[in-house]
Structures are given as structure tokens and as C-alpha cells.
Simulated scan of single mutants.
Amino acid sequence: MRFDVITLFPELFEPFFKSGITRRAFESRQVDVRLWNPRDHAQGNYRRVDDRPFGGGPGMVMMAEPLWRCLQAIRVDRAEPELACAPVVLFSPIGQKLDHAMATAWSESAGAVLLCGRYEGIDQRFIDACVDRQVSLGDFVLSGGEIAAIALLDSVARLMPGVLSDEGSHQQDSFNPALSGLLDSPHHTRPEVWEGPDGPVGVPAALLGGHHERIGRYRRDQSLTLSQALRPELVDQARAAGQLSKADETFLRTLKKL
């Protein structure tokens, strides 16, 4: 798949592509990412990409024309059929929130053009004419769309075959269908007893001894406990989808009695 990123700060992406386990996806071009600076497509001696907003107000607004020229260059480079152009995605507070289902859908797609806004925003005329979808990380505002673009690319890259050392790792992630969309359970590692600030703390007994069925039930119960306490809507969604077993429901009833 291929993602073309329109950004005024392409240098922000370089460390991300070279660090961590997901770099495998970018180095192998399983996730082929190409960076485009709209300033390279601006006109005039100053290569201006922003101007004051009509009607007044603080800040500057990204101009439509440099973005349009940049997008046209991307379309030519991608050499796509006119009726099968990659969608243009704008990162914006009004967009649909990025979640696991969206990341999975993008990991099974041919990619997209990711538009990273800056300043007070982008000329609405360009959005109306060229943007197909808007995506948000949450109910807060960032200085630009680059962090959101990196979040989307990372969530997609780790789902690609061979990227994670253990093929089953992402299946145990929070929100994954393999966990019925619930939160993941807590994790423990060596030493078996940690001399913490409040004294020695041992690993839960259920995780010791190699009894796989007992371990699986313990982790499921912990997942249910966390989800019910922190994100009860996830439990409701799993129940509505028929993803809770009789054992799950029995355990949840014990939580209500506590």
C-alpha cells in the first residue's frame, strides 16, 4: 500500500521511519510512504503557502492553490485511473475518531493521500473540492496534522505481516476482535517477586505453572474487569455482538456484587 503525506514539515517523519519495530514495514515498503511539501508547489519568490483569513481573525490559513498543485503532482506520480484515485484524508478535530477498526480497514486498503494541516486551518474551498474523509485523534487540538498522520501510519504498519516479531502480538491488543473488542489484560514479567516501593509484589499465581486454560481464563477475567470499570460501553458492545460466553457473564455478575 502507498500513503502520500502532504506536510510543511517532512523532517518530522524521518526519525519515525527509522525507529522501532514498525520500521520494518517502511523499509520493506509494505507501507510505502512518500512525503510532499506544498511549499515546493507554491508560486513566487517566497513560495508562500498561507495568508490572512478573509473576514479577519487571528492566525493564518493554508492556501488552496499550493495544495491543489501538490495534489495534482501526487496524482500524476501515483498514475492512478481517474475513477480509482486514492482518497484524500484530512486530519481535523471534526473528523471521525481513529480507532482499531479504522486502522484495520486502512491496513487492508491500497492507501491514501494524508493531508496535514497547519496554522488556523485550510481554505475550506480546497476541503470541499478535494478532501474525501476527515480523521481525528480525539477531542483536542494539535499544532498540525503530522502527529495524527504518524499515529495512523504506526497503527497500520504494526498490522502488516512480518512486522511484529510475534505474529499473534497485535491480536492481543486492546480493541482487537480477538479480545471481543475489550481492553487487554495486564502483563507481568521477571522477576517473579519485585521488591517495589511498598514491599515485595509477586506475579499473580494464575500466571505461574503453565496451566494454559487457567491462564487464559485469568486473562479474560482481567480484560472483563478493566473494560467494565474503565470502558463499560465495550462490554455492552461485546454482549450485543454475542461475543460474551456464559463464563464471561457469570464473572461479570460477580463484579456487580463487589
Rank of each mutant, 00 (worst) to 15 (best):
R78P: 00
P38S: 11
A42E: 05
C70M: 05
Y46F: 14
P53T: 03
L67H: 07
P66F: 04
H41C: 03
D40F: 01
G56S: 08
C70I: 06
V49E: 06
G55P: 11
G55L: 07
F54Q: 12
M62F: 02
A42L: 08
D77T: 13
R75D: 14
N37K: 12
A42P: 01
L71W: 07
V76P: 00
R75N: 08
P58M: 05
V49Q: 08
R78M: 10
L67F: 07
L67T: 05
R52G: 00
P53F: 00
V61S: 05
R48D: 09
R52E: 04
V76I: 14
L71F: 06
R47W: 01
A73D: 13
M62K: 09
Q43G: 03
L71I: 09
C70A: 15
R78N: 14
L67S: 03
C70R: 02
P38C: 12
V49W: 02
D51M: 11
D51R: 11
F54T: 11
R78F: 00
G56P: 02
R69L: 05
F54S: 10
G55C: 06
E65A: 15
D77H: 14
D50L: 06
P66D: 07
R47T: 02
P38I: 08
G44L: 09
D77V: 00
L71H: 13
M62D: 04
